[in-house]
Simulated assay, not measured.
Amino acid sequence: MRALQQTLTLAWRSLVQVRHNPWELGDYSIQPILFLVLFLYVFGGAISGTPDDYLSYMLPGVIVMNLVFVTVYVGHGLNTDLTKGIFDRFRALPIPRWAPLAGRIVADLAKQSLCILLLLGVGYLLGFRPDSSILAVVAMVALLLLFALSASWIMVLVGVVARDPEHVQLFGFTALFPVTFVSNAFVPVATMPGWLQGVVQANPVSVLTDAVRGLLLGGPVAAPVLGSLAWAVALTALFAPLSVWALNRRLARG
Rank of each mutant, 00 (worst) to 15 (best):
A175V: 15
A102F: 05
R104W: 04
L114K: 09
G254A: 13
V106P: 02
K111N: 05
I63L: 08
T71D: 02
R104V: 01
A142Y: 10
Q31Y: 11
V18F: 04
A211R: 08
Y41R: 06
T209R: 10
L67A: 03
I63M: 08
G85W: 13
V156L: 00
V141R: 10
T209K: 11
F181G: 06
L135Q: 14
W153P: 00
P188C: 05
A222C: 06
W98S: 07
A110H: 11
L235M: 12
L25A: 09
P188G: 01
G198Y: 09
A107K: 13
F43P: 03
K84S: 15
S228H: 11
W195I: 07
L146D: 06
A211T: 05
A232C: 14
T7W: 06
D81S: 03
D81Q: 07
L119G: 02
L145H: 15
L82W: 04
A110W: 14
G172M: 10
L215P: 00
L176D: 02
W12T: 01
D53R: 15
A246C: 01
P220D: 04
W12E: 07
V141Q: 06
R129Y: 09
C115V: 10
Y41I: 05
Y54D: 00
R253C: 04
H20F: 11
V179H: 07
L170W: 08
I95K: 11
Y54P: 01
L117C: 04
V70S: 09
A92K: 13
L93R: 12
L78T: 02
F35Q: 04
